[in-house]
Structures are given as C-alpha cells and as structure tokens.
Amino acid sequence: MSYQAKGLQAWFLQRVSAVFMACYIIFFIWFFLNTEQMTYPIWLNWFSHPLMNIATGLFLVQLVIHAWVGMRDIVLDYIPNDAVRLITLTCIGFFLIASSLEMIRILFSLSFNV
C-alpha cells in the first residue's frame, strides 16, 4: 500500500474490495432480518462460526484497504502542499493500522470465547 507506484493495484483493490464488502453487507442484513429475535448468544454463535469469522476478518482487511485508497485519493486531490499531504497520509495510515489491530483483537476474542 505504498503511496507511490501503486496506481493500478490501488484502483483494482478498491473495486474488488467494494464488491466483496457489498456482498458481505447484503448477507449481513439478510441474516439480521431473517432472525426473529437477535440475542447475544445467537449473535455470538453466528460470529464464532469459522466461515463467518473468516469472512468478517476479510471484510475488515478489505475495509482498511478500501478506506486507505479512498482517503489517499482525497488527500492527493485536495491537499496540494507536500508536507501537509505527507503528514495527513501518515495520520490516516496510523489510524487505519490502530483500527485494524483493535478489530483483530475483537475477532480473536470471539474465536477463543466459544
């Protein structure tokens, strides 16, 4: 995910992650609407299923990639000053890494709880 020399990959990943996330979100809403009463045990059971757990993990990875490419695009378009550009990109990068670590911690705690 370097900022230079990743035009095609970034563009491609942005599209692939969008399709994956759209499918995940549709499934998520479908499951939610088709469960009569969503209780914590059902929720926990659902998210502890290996397939759902992996799919959620993939979703989070794709979300971070998608957010990085999108935010990078906005920064490259609207922040002309090189120094401000670099600082903003670094802050966004740190925020995304921190968010992904937190998401991994939550997912792992779900896997080991059951």
Binding site: A5, K6, G7, A10, W11, L76
Partner: peptide, 11 residues
C-alpha cells in the same frame, strides 16, 4: 502511466 497520478487521478 503507472503510479497514483499520471492516469489514476481520473475519477
């Protein structure tokens, strides 16, 4: 044309 600028600034 590779890189984030030359081509891929087109939205």
């Amino acid at each position: 044309l590779e890189g984030p600028y030359k081509l891929f600034r087109c939205h």
